[in-house]
Design a protein around this nucleic acid. Structure first.
Lengths: 224, 224
DNA sequence: CGGTATATTTCGTTC
DNA sequence: GAACGAAGTATACCG
């Protein structure tokens, strides 16, 4: 990883055209040759960047100052013109062991699959990631009366999720062995617009309490 | 801006729970107190971060090594435990003059609104951002026969855009003053799945040539 | 490699 | 301040 602090101007030409006027900034060059340009605010987003895979070419301008050209296969180009280099250091970091996550959709799906009765008395699991022609349904299950149920799980329930579930339901309901299939939209938080659309389409909305689901799971584990 | 290279482990508790095992990484502290932790790959996304506004508290662990606690108002917490500091430098950058952009969806909409005939002979504009109960339609226009046309514009045409236009068309077609409303899905690039879905729903797909539209616009400007 | 779904998405604009 | 839509979204996963 190379850290350069320089007064620089930056031009990007690719999916759009963008320009950064001359100012002091941090330029980060990583081991995969990716480059990002940071201002002194905003933790997450660089001002400009080039994602890997890409190549970095260092050359010199008319006055001998560095000009970097970063390019990718798609012809996108990032040009960094440095007027003054204030800092330049390189560091060996090695490959990162990576992030360990908890609490994402996958885990919600596991928890809910283990506790289908959360959705209704006598409900049971058929299978997780039930495959269809347009992708896997998060959970396919059965209600107390033996009817089929398709569950779409999101952390945040928005309109896209309802559309997705609608497409699955349309497809599943063409299968005479499964039809009629009831839809359930389950999320930790459901946006009003998504709830309205779902209700309008006869899809039930369920708000999931992650801690409660996990708590139940913990209780279960303690029994063994 | 403060640059620290350190062997560290990181724990995040907030919207999810995440952990990074001990390894050398770059820790970026910006003037707004935001913090990001970077590995030696991926230009854009940090491994972990805390967006502003937030506060950074520096303390010491049992063995005297630095422990940083970054916290925001929502109770999200990022804890960086450093085993060894390999580099630590600070730099004054000042406020960035900011990015100048060109070529986004808004511009495509302007250009297309000015050249409705690109979509069909005798086509004309009713208005841009035509308001409906579920949001504004990018362009509402009229074809040569006087029929109403709703145009949805995207840089990249994907399935979501077709769903969005479908919802608009459903709504607009309930308005007896407008119905029947024809749908046009216009984008610089249209994904095959989106094209299939659109065609299946009777929506016409149009690929936009940004340079050509802009060229036409430039010619127009030169006349005055 | 292309297509799809996810994201601690972030970011801007509007209501 | 919430909510909705766009982003050079980026990135992981799957065929």
């Amino acid at each position: 990883m190379r850290l350069v602090i320089a007064r620089c101007s930056v031009d990007y030409a690719g999916r759009l055209t963008a320009h950064l006027p001359l100012a002091p900034r941090l330029i980060l060059v990583k081991a995969d040759q990716s480059v990002s340009v940071h201002a002194d605010d905003r933790a997450y987003k660089p001002l400009n960047w080039m994602s890997p895979p890409c190549t970095l070419k260092e050359s010199e301008g008319e006055d001998g100052t560095p000009v970097w050209t970063v390019q990718n296969k798609g012809g996108e180009k990032l040009i960094i013109t440095m007027a003054e280099v204030l800092h330049d250091s390189s560091h060996e970091l090695g490959v990162d062991p990576g992030l360990i996550k908890d609490g994402v959709e996958a885990h919600l799906q596991e928890l809910l699959a283990d506790r289908m009765e959360t959705l209704g008395d006598g409900w049971s699991l058929i299978r997780r990631e039930y495959p269809t022609a347009i992708g896997p349904v998060d959970i396919l299950g059965r209600d107390a009366a033996g009817g089929t149920v398709a569950v779409e799980i999101k952390r945040r329930g928005e309109i896209d999720g309802v559309e997705q579930l609608t497409r699955y339901l349309e497809l599943l309901n063409r299968d005479s062995l499964l039809a009629p299939v009831q839809g359930v939209f389950a999320a930790q938080e459901i946006k009003p617009q998504a709830r309205t659309l779902a209700t309008d389409r006869g899809i039930r909305c369920v708000t999931l309490d992650y801690d409660a689901l996990r708590g139940v799971e913990d209780d279960k584990l303690r029994l063994f």
